[in-house]
Nucleic acid binder design. Structure first.
Lengths: 206, 206
DNA sequence: GGCATTCGGTACTGACCGATACCGAAGTTT
DNA sequence: AAACTTCGGTATCGGTCAGTACCGAATGCC
């Protein structure tokens, strides 16, 4: 319906993937509500008509932008999960968050945080999508740390849910700090300070 | 010009302080750009005309709302700074952030974070105001910890700037988590885990 | 070549945005 | 009571929002 059909009719005159990458930067910098269709289509180099035909509507575009962001600027997250040891997972996650949130040439902060945190009616759905995105990330970390407990990589009393939420909280805070202009080096020190809670003590004695 | 003049003419028919408190909740829940004047005046119980006469314009209202928020829901911050020991300051700050971000009857999260994190042209000024507000908070913490080093309350090698930024980062992360629906008890555990970096080791050996 | 289909572009829709001009009414001062 | 000031309310301002109808042009299939 939208694209990948048998090639009938005039072919699209722009690269949809490249246009999507441009849209990522606009939503990232201005947020869902703050990014107008003129902002988006202007950066994408296409007209409103082409955008609607290729991506649906603004909300659909935002979903696809989030997917692209996950596979691109936020790909450090999936890589962190594949680290062999729990502490390496934590380190790669926080260092990756600092790196991605302070990348030159990209907006500061994290699309998954500042895309839509508090919003009116028009941004409510984007807000919920991002909250679910962050919660999904937390769940990935939790499962990774639960596996680490099973493997003996973490002490038996360690709480995977707490460890996951702690790391995601620090990661979110790093994104807010970066959005406010914090320097990469300062945030790396913050990340290292958070990692001083590692290895976690067992919660059995609580 | 706006209010506190010699009482000439018809007196104002509403309580400006109460109206301001209602406006706090609207900006808090919907963000600067997401809060329309109809949303605001509807919750404040006044007309557009009365709002403009009493508060200036939307941006002026937002500044006054932020002041009110600082003295009200965020007053835990000033109280934390007055704790006698550095560790008590850190604990009161993070626990207060959790409490304020998950207060029943109030929007979740922190106005100073979700009020305007990424925005378009109309919300850019509010975004900068909030970034400065957070940075001011960090500076307060830094000065407090610098004094603690002088008093011998913190080790001589402790880095007040790093400690302040670390705590503000965790506090901001707590606000994002709360905005996403995280439970108060879970966030209290996160705060306590962050406090396990206390007392800070000196950075002299680095 | 003829037909079907999709292309990119222009112009427009109704709705909403923040802000203001104007109004009669209500209150204070003299 | 007269003069003056500010009140709350209505109606409206130009501008922008997301979304769409319609256009001629360009391309692939038969």
């Amino acid at each position: 319906m939208t694209s990948k059909q048998t090639a009938i009719g005039r072919p699209r005159g722009f690269d949809a993937d490249e246009a999507l990458e441009r849209a990522v930067l606009v939503f990232w910098a201005r947020g869902y509500e703050g990014a107008s269709l003129d902002d988006l289509t202007g950066a994408m180099g296409i007209t409103r008509t082409s955008m609607y035909r290729a991506f649906g509507n603004k909300e659909d575009l935002f979903r696809k932008v989030l997917e692209r962001y996950t596979e691109g600027p936020a790909s450090y997250f999936a890589r962190a999960l594949r680290e062999p040891a729990a502490r390496a997972v934590a380190t790669a996650f926080l260092h990756g968050a600092v790196h991605a949130s302070t990348q030159p040439g990209c907006p500061t902060g994290c699309l998954g945080v500042q895309g839509s945190l508090a919003a009116g009616d028009t941004g409510a759905q984007a807000r919920d999508i991002l909250a679910a995105w962050r919660e999904e990330g937390t769940a990935h970390l939790r499962r990774r740390f639960a596996a680490a407990v099973d493997e003996g990589d973490l002490p038996p009393g360690a709480d995977p849910a707490l460890l996951a939420r702690f790391l995601m909280t620090v990661g979110n805070g790093i994104a807010v700090q970066a959005a406010g202009g914090a320097a990469r080096d300062d945030l790396l020190l913050v990340a290292d300070m958070a990692l001083r809670t590692w290895p976690p003590v067992g919660s059995a004695g609580r």
